[in-house]
Design a protein around this nucleic acid. Structure first.
Lengths: 239, 239
DNA sequence: ATCCTAAGTGTGAAGTTGACACTAGCTTTT
DNA sequence: AAAAGCTAGTGTCAACTTCACACTTAGGAT
């Protein structure tokens, strides 16, 4: 501890300091086939060549962190137009075996529409891109498992405390589908009547008038109202 | 946007990238004279020489972010043994006029005991160190006002949702003192009976058996129990 | 002894949460 | 065309929580 003090202390407020690399890593969650999934890429280069990792990359000299996250996402996975939320910054000195790399993690919820539209594909530097079920993950590169665990906590928190679960669904959805999202993410069954009462009380959903046809009794379709969502997002405790 | 893509994209997963400087900045809150206060230092060097700023400094090559925060705090202000919580990472490209500097902000609540004990003084690189009332702040350097605003949001959230307000008080305190903390931070009067019922229901406080003598009826003194606090902190939504 | 001031205490009404079971409406099968 | 199968959809009561609200108690100062 005192060694590092002497290293850096005399230089305070000059700009001659060890400069780490800074990256952004993105955790993209989606809901597919009744499973919570996360988007991973397969690394082509060392370190961890062949291993799966969160999409991410270096922050450019003249771009903000959020912009870097959007750019890398587009480049590596062709995903665009998502709302990213800063998650946490991970900076253990040894988290990258080659150099000091500090990473700012972002996460996003992708609606089923977005997953379908994005035509996700791998960028030139990326081996392969695919969605993985949260419950059957491969071994991850770096400390990405830890980052993912943390993102999962945050996601659970979000669903426990806000009515924003529909962000993982298509534009129109049934209440049963929404309940399924909540049950899957929170890993617990919910009472149908109480769930409906509660989610409707949040006043972010409105009936579209359409029905979901299917094998059985058709279900009313709901959508969220943009204004209400802004309110709900404004209620976020950690912007 | 596409310019910066071309700048950095071809180098993905090599380590030849613009490397920003990375700093930590600390927001230390304390409660003094019925006011919420924050610890600031006066800058001696440009940029913003003479302006007040959050204590902070560069992250060493081989130290974690948290360790860097502790070290800088000790160096600049002589504050030690505080529990820091990561707040947010600010990385707008122009937030430092001279170079690209990304900062990871931490915040901490200092008890009145700690404020008294710490013998806060300025490190060699720091002009002056003092506590400022939140409601009478000087103009701050960089984007530190923005960072502070965000920290205040988080602090309010913390007091709204947890019983951790006593972190800002000395070891022993009366319920009235605790209520005053909550009222000050939340900027709203609270009902005495409801406040007491609620805070006692959280089961983190215990009577010490001592009384606070004073001009009027003596008040029971309370302390928090360490185990209970761990529980309460474990309840934190964002570790 | 009286006054002043802060400490300390309880209740009822309103709202919220949680447990719980049946009917409605469509498709498929026979 | 009737029955079976399956999912959608709905209401109530009890327990608990929240909120508003006012008086008594204990010490210090005079």
């Amino acid at each position: 501890m005192s060694e590092s003090m002497q290293l850096t202390s005399p230089m305070l407020y000059t700009y001659e300091h060890p400069r780490p690399s800074v990256t952004v890593d993105m955790i993209l969650f989606a809901f597919q086939n009744d499973e919570l999934t996360v988007l991973l890429i397969r690394r082509t280069h060392d370190p961890f060549a062949g291993k799966w990792a969160l999409p991410g990359g270096f922050v450019g000299a003249q771009e903000g962190l959020y912009e870097a996250a959007l750019r890398e996402l587009k480049e590596e996975t062709n995903v665009a137009n998502v709302y990213l939320e800063q998650l946490y910054t991970f900076g253990q000195p040894d988290r990258d075996p080659r150099a000091r790399v500090i990473t700012v993690a972002y996460f996003a919820l992708l609606s089923a529409d977005e997953v379908a539209q994005q035509r996700i594909h791998s960028g030139s530097d990326v081996g392969e891109t695919r969605w993985w079920s949260i419950y059957a993950l491969p071994e991850l590169a770096f400390d990405h498992q830890q980052i993912l665990d943390y993102a999962l906590q945050r996601l659970r928190w979000k669903l426990e405390w806000t009515a924003l679960g529909f962000l993982l669904l298509p534009k129109e959805f049934t209440l049963s589908e929404l309940q399924k999202v909540y049950e899957t993410v929170l890993s617990q069954p919910l009472d149908k009547r109480n769930f409906r009462r509660k989610i409707l009380a949040a006043r972010v959903l409105e009936e579209t008038g359409n029905m979901r046809a299917g094998d059985h009794r058709p279900a009313k379709l709901y959508a969220f109202s943009a204004e209400a969502v802004e309110l709900e997002q404004a209620r976020r405790r950690f912007p």
